[in-house]
Computed example of a mutant assay.
Amino acid sequence: MIIGLIILAVAAVALILLYNGLVKARQVKEEAWSGIDVQLKRRADLIHNLVETVKGYAAHERGTLEEIVALRNKAQAVPSGDVAGRAAAEGMLSQALGRLFALAEAYPDLKANQNYADLQASLEKTENEIQMARRYYNGAARDLNVRVESFPANLVAGSFGFSKAPYFEITNEADRAVPTVKF
């Protein structure tokens, strides 16, 4: 009887440790997603200011600017928990931003403007922070997914509703292409 109680106690401790490990992995993934979300919000705010600055110099390039604003709004409209949808929308926005920066090369006065230079530097810094946040999120998602799929944690995960997390990745090959600008 004592041996039975010891086995039961060991099994209960193992179950608790597995469950707590899954909870921790899920929380790290959620925290990582929050980091991406914060950086994407910062980028959206910077884009608005950048577009307004460029408008003053390149009023006749309205199509590019309107596209960036539309893609920014589309990206912000994706629900926060929709990782795949957010990744697709942000990929399209990154493409459009690349075209905007290439377009700015045609306006020497714009490139020399301190406001534009500051905004571009801030946006580039934010893009780097988004990239780091994406890598951190994908690492957290990987860790959670390994726990959810590994034995015996997969038995606990299935019983308590833990599921795999999607990766934040570019799925559209066109989003990977180098931006092209036509005048």
Rank of each mutant, 00 (worst) to 15 (best):
residue 177 A to R: 04
residue 155 L to S: 11
residue 133 A to L: 07
residue 111 K to H: 06
residue 67 E to V: 11
residue 167 Y to I: 11
residue 162 F to T: 13
residue 87 A to G: 02
residue 159 S to M: 12
residue 92 M to K: 15
residue 13 V to L: 14
residue 25 A to Q: 08
residue 149 E to G: 10
residue 27 Q to V: 14
residue 36 I to Y: 03
residue 91 G to K: 09
residue 148 V to W: 04
residue 117 A to K: 03
residue 122 S to C: 08
residue 11 A to K: 05
residue 97 L to Y: 09
residue 17 L to H: 04
residue 178 V to H: 05
residue 7 I to Q: 03
residue 117 A to S: 07
residue 71 L to Q: 13
residue 143 D to C: 10
residue 58 A to I: 02
residue 29 K to Y: 01
residue 107 Y to S: 08
residue 1 M to L: 08
residue 136 Y to P: 00
residue 122 S to V: 06
residue 112 A to S: 09
residue 50 L to D: 02
residue 171 T to W: 00
residue 31 E to W: 00
residue 81 G to A: 11
residue 61 E to W: 01
residue 56 G to Y: 02
residue 109 D to W: 06
residue 18 L to I: 13
residue 170 I to V: 12
residue 21 G to A: 13
residue 174 A to T: 14
residue 26 R to H: 14
residue 172 N to R: 06
residue 133 A to E: 09
residue 129 E to S: 14
residue 123 L to N: 15
residue 158 G to L: 03
residue 136 Y to N: 13
residue 46 L to Q: 03
residue 78 V to Q: 08
residue 134 R to G: 12
residue 25 A to L: 09
residue 26 R to V: 10
residue 54 V to D: 02
residue 157 A to C: 13
residue 61 E to T: 09
residue 86 R to W: 01
residue 176 R to V: 06
residue 19 Y to F: 07
residue 135 R to D: 08
residue 43 R to I: 10
residue 84 A to M: 11
residue 102 A to Q: 04
residue 170 I to K: 07
residue 52 E to R: 12
residue 76 Q to M: 15
residue 140 A to Y: 03
residue 110 L to P: 07
residue 137 Y to G: 03
residue 99 R to I: 11
residue 162 F to Y: 08
residue 180 T to E: 10
residue 44 A to N: 14
residue 41 K to W: 07
residue 6 I to V: 13
residue 24 K to F: 10
residue 19 Y to N: 05
residue 53 T to C: 03
residue 173 E to L: 07
residue 11 A to E: 02
residue 24 K to T: 15
residue 98 G to T: 01
residue 14 A to T: 14
residue 101 F to C: 01
residue 62 R to M: 08
residue 39 Q to W: 02
residue 74 K to E: 10
residue 56 G to Q: 03
residue 177 A to P: 00
residue 34 S to I: 09
residue 104 A to T: 01
residue 112 A to N: 05
residue 114 Q to T: 15
residue 130 I to T: 07
residue 27 Q to C: 06
residue 53 T to M: 01
residue 25 A to S: 13
residue 2 I to Q: 10
residue 103 L to H: 04
residue 57 Y to E: 06
residue 29 K to R: 14
residue 158 G to W: 07
residue 36 I to N: 02
residue 119 L to Q: 13
residue 166 P to K: 01
residue 58 A to F: 04
residue 30 E to C: 06
residue 14 A to N: 08
residue 122 S to M: 10
residue 72 R to L: 09
residue 28 V to H: 07
residue 65 L to G: 05
residue 97 L to V: 14
residue 166 P to E: 07
residue 117 A to L: 01
residue 67 E to K: 13
residue 38 V to P: 02
residue 48 H to A: 13
residue 164 K to N: 09
residue 48 H to E: 11
